[in-house]
Amino acid sequence: MVALSVNLAGVKLKNPVVPASGTFGFGREFSELYDLNVLGAISVKGITREPRIGNPLPRIAETPSGMLNAVGLENRGIDAVLSEELPWLRAHFDGPIIANVGGFSPEEYASNCERLAASAAVSILEVNISCPNVHCGGRNFGSSPESATAITKAVRGVTGKPVFMKLSPNVADIAEVARACEGEGADGLCLINTLVGMRIDIARRKPVLANVTGGLSGPAILPVALRMVWAAYEAVKIPIIGCGGVASAEDAIEMMMAGATAVEVGAANLIDPMASRRIAESLPALCERLGIADIAGIVGAAHDFQRTK
């Protein structure tokens, strides 16, 4: 019997598989296909103070081994999330709910985090300072250690619940941003968000996406995510949720060996709605094959090669 549970800053997950924010809504569509309780936790669609329709269409484009999205944080706004979406999910899922929190200013982040943390349904706050598709005066808050520090500081004081900062890969030095968040008291990190990219329609001679650029996700970014989780793991002591291109149980184990305590499954949910369940259910047999008795024991295991060689 393989032990699959992991612990994220005091929150116990029965397994490390978590659908990633923005690829799973609030679970409604997936609950028609399978019992959500097979999942370790659920990271819900990003939440802002005001309802948002997002960016103009088209806002999806295909890429080699992945996709671009420029959705732009479409969501119903925090009031509807608190009054309708979270109660619905709580009634259909017993495990930890991770509230993914967006914002356009340190004040909005703080207020959104405070209100969401006050909900008994929410176990962890995942603070998205890395959406590439909304623009706050031309930057996103995860793009520099200074702005990441400012948001972490703003949200840290408003709740005792674990705060995980979701980091952008579109930075020069991910370790520096990771350390900045840890230094301000973040309980954990989630990385990576999508990589900025674009495509051009050669017949129309213009960008495919109305937003011009979008965020790249899917198997194409798995190696980038692994490298960044690896670097963050070396830089900080707080737990890391690894995210980016995971499509199989093997990918999830790889992410954990790079340093992730839990693993988010993103774009895979969109092309195979059973992906998160399939990965969670494949883990025990894979662990047995690999001689893993307790999955929590492999977090960062690949870093040991430097000490043993």
């Binding site: 690829t23 409604r28 569509e29 329709i53 997002g54 269409l57 709605p273």
Partner: peptide
């Protein structure tokens, strides 16, 4: 008709505005 991501309402990639609020073209 539009470009879609998932086709079943999860990715919010094809939302259009309607008189009843945002609606996913796929869903």
């Amino acid at each position: 008709e539009t470009r879609m991501g998932c086709g079943f309402g999860a990715c919010m990639g094809c939302t259009t505005e309607t008189t009843h609020g945002p609606a996913r073209i796929c869903h």
